[in-house]
């Protein structure tokens, strides 16, 4: 049968509700082995890699906002400034960075829409609605919004 069940050590009394659990009996078990977590734990498993990539999409979000702020700044100053902005965007290195950022942005959109049904437990008639009914409309909205923005900008001459 199972062994290793040492006599239950005395637990520290539970303090106020907001205090963290105080387990103070380590001194009676000086040799507990506590493994250290590697700084690179997020490389250890594919789901963790995916997680950290998903979290790093925030950098692409910040980058895109920075590009937009530059654009608004150039636009509201003068035509010459705006030409400068266009020239900057046309640099091969900028196009490369924007390609990578765009891939991250799409990854953010897809993961965000896919995870939304998890966070929203919508019930109709006592039954939880299927996830596709929550993420589906978001995908449709994404397509609609993209089409509208594209249409508005493509029809400016």
């Amino acid at each position: 049968m199972s062994s290793g069940q040492s006599s239950a050590p005395a637990l520290a009394p539970v303090h106020g509700e907001n205090e963290q659990p105080q387990v103070t009996y380590t001194e009676f078990h000086p040799r507990w082995y506590r493994p250290q977590i590697s700084t690179y734990w997020w490389l250890g498993k594919w789901p963790y890699v995916k997680f950290i990539l998903r979290e790093l999409t925030s950098v692409a979000v910040a980058w895109t906002v920075a590009v937009m702020l530059m654009q608004i700044f150039a636009l509201t100053h003068s035509g010459a400034f705006y030409d400068g902005f266009e020239a900057l965007m046309a640099l091969p290195v900028m196009i490369l960075v924007n390609f990578i950022a765009f891939a991250f942005l799409v990854f953010h959109s897809v993961t965000w829409f896919n995870l939304a049904p998890k966070a929203m437990a919508v019930r109709v008639g006592g039954k939880r609605v299927h996830g596709i009914l929550i993420s589906g409309p978001q995908y449709l909205a994404w397509i609609a919004v993209s089409a509208i923005v594209l249409f508005i900008l493509a029809t400016r001459t």
Binding site: G4, S6, P9, L11, V14, P21, Q22, Y25, H29, Y33
Partner: peptide, 20 residues
Amino acid sequence: FPVVRDLVVEIGEFLEKLKK
């Protein structure tokens, strides 16, 4: 979790959290 011995881990901290 801290390892007590072989495959046995110490879960006292979890039990405290559970009560909370």
